[in-house]
Design a protein around this nucleic acid. Structure first.
Lengths: 144, 144
DNA sequence: TAATACTCTACTTGTACGGTAGGAATAGTA
DNA sequence: TACTATTCCTACCGTACAAGTAGAGTATTA
């Protein structure tokens, strides 16, 4: 029931891109240093996010990555889906033919409930939400 | 983010024990057949549930397993915890020292939210609830 | 042309899952 | 007492995937 580092790293990287949205491309080297992630590993994660259309890359010197959409248009469920795969607790929840008991199975209903609970959270939060929240935090810290 | 078969099998087995609560021990052979689970594998799962005190075993001929508590006293979170381990989405959620950003990290808060959502569902359901629900289903089916 | 940064593919290593297998211990029964 | 049924314990195994590492290749800019 643990998240993969892929997803955790990916969300952190995406958040960093969101924070510098509108500016020039952010280099993976920078993100890797900030987030203490292996550059080579990060490259692979970003390739996944790129294929899925959430980020754009700029090659060559002074290149880097930028978000392909507005931070408010990228939900955490998008990033999650891309890196971790669909939120599935049990095969039977998606595929009715997977198990003969499917129609009446009360256990299946539980897994569906769990799955929905996770999905609800991730779909309710965008990168912009996180950017805002992080900004608030910093402000309130300065006030202390 | 998928559940292990351990947990899924375990819940199904526990539910079967709950359904025959108050009667004589149910044998693993029977459960394994009903649920189409490898007997040898099931033995291992039940050993875990036994160590955790949720079921009691009766050895020897005519032996088997019974619930060690009332079905209403066993939450799905108990079984889940025992077989899948604690509901942890990310290490940092439990252990503040795991990451230096911990105090202000908005990503950590997301994982905490997800974790809480899962926990809420599993803690709100007992084996008795499932037994009741399954009984209702059968009744309504007969009425059709 | 040199330097920079992404791109693509292959490889490695460790770990956990999902079992299988075999025999020992225990308890009822003939 | 011998036999049978059942749980108990330990060891083993194959596979898949996570989490990286590595290196050569390509595009872009200065």
């Amino acid at each position: 029931m643990k998240l993969s580092t892929r997803t955790r790293y990916g969300v952190r990287a995406a958040l960093e891109l969101a924070e510098s949205a509108g500016r020039r491309p952010l280099q993976l080297k920078t993100i890797a240093q900030h987030q203490e992630i292996s550059l080579k590993y990060l490259e692979q994660l970003m390739a996944m996010l790129r294929s899925a259309g959430f980020v754009r890359s700029v090659r060559g010197s002074k290149g880097g990555y930028v978000l392909a959409k507005l931070p408010s248009q990228i939900k955490l469920s998008d990033v999650f889906n891309c890196l971790e795969g669909p939120v599935i607790t049990a095969e039977c929840v998606q595929n009715d033919n997977y198990c003969a008991r499917s129609a009446d199975c009360v256990v299946k209903q539980v897994w569906a409930q769990v799955q929905q609970a996770v999905t609800n959270v991730l779909e309710s939060i965008t990168l912009q939400d996180l950017v805002d929240k992080a900004k608030d935090k910093k402000t309130s810290n300065y006030q202390i």
